[in-house]
């Protein structure tokens, strides 16, 4: 058994099988239409993934997610880094973010729709908000923790304040920034689905909640599986990028996913 654990992928496979087994047992015991046995849902997954319209929806979602995520990172990293190096900037942004942090970003969706309509912009903005905060927080922490003497060493070599921020603070804080981004990827997925639940036009959330409305439970559960797989793939891909970029760093602690 210990040997089996060592093979990559095997523990994941065992965990998946366990979930399916529990699901199957539950569906037999509970016997409600809202909890169909897993096999119907599993059969539905390839159907969804080969259906052209579903694929268009999923791609639309992924597109939103990547745009929202990229904009958030482009905004959050500089803000977080500046906050960590300037007390004035931190004093300005800190209370602001403390108020926004616990607000579920998807709950802002109806208000945002009033400003920007039900289209792409609203959804991208919600994803942007969801991703920004953890990335700002971790960039801030990483920037604050940069060793003063490292900056002094760079200053002695002739690097000015701007060059120090870009070429010393940024790389030194990168391990911590990446922790924030990894949380951000998962939050992007969560806010993406919830925003599409509220403003339904296209996307993964759209398929999901339409199926729910029409009591197509096999499709509903199949979509949960699809979203789960997407989340897993995003995280896995992200982790691969992180390892590639941060070979020089000591391993970072595990991360917890914050509120959406």
């Amino acid at each position: 058994m210990a040997r089996l654990n060592a093979i990559p992928g095997v523990p994941v496979l065992i965990a998946c099988l366990a979930i399916l087994l529990i699901w199957d047992l539950l569906s037999r015991v509970v016997m409600v239409s809202g909890l169909p046995p897993p096999w119907g849902a599993l059969q539905e997954v390839p159907v969804i993934l080969t259906d052209k319209e579903s694929l268009v929806n999923i791609l639309a979602s992924l597109r939103r997610m990547s745009i929202g995520f990229s904009l958030a990172v482009a905004f959050a990293v500089p803000v977080g880094l500046l906050m960590g190096r300037s007390r004035l900037v931190a004093a300005f942004f800190n209370p602001l973010f403390m108020i926004i942090y616990p607000v579920p970003k998807a709950a802002l969706m109806p208000i945002i729709m009033l400003w920007l309509g039900v289209g792409e912009m609203s959804k991208i903005l919600v994803i942007f908000l969801g991703v920004s905060l953890p990335v700002i927080y971790h960039s801030y922490q990483g920037s604050k923790a940069v060793e003063e003497k490292m900056l002094w060493s760079a200053a002695a070599m002739g690097l000015g304040p701007m060059a120090r921020l870009l070429r010393v603070v940024f790389p030194a804080a990168l391990p911590e920034i990446m922790v924030g981004c990894r949380t951000g990827v998962v939050l992007a997925l969560i806010t993406m689905v919830t925003s599409e639940m509220i403003a339904r036009q296209t996307g993964i959330g759209n398929i999901f909640f339409n199926a729910l409305d029409m009591a197509q439970y096999d499709t509903v559960y199949a979509m949960i599986i699809v979203i789960g797989i997407l989340g897993f793939l995003c995280d896995w891909g992200f982790e691969a990028v992180r390892r590639m970029l941060l070979g020089w760093a000591a391993p970072v602690h595990d991360i917890a996913v914050g509120s959406a």
Binding site: M150, W152, S153, A156, V168, P171, A172, W248, A249
Partner: peptide
Amino acid sequence: GPVFQEFALFPW
């Protein structure tokens, strides 16, 4: 040119 007890090397 400074040399610090903490080394202060660029880890990346």
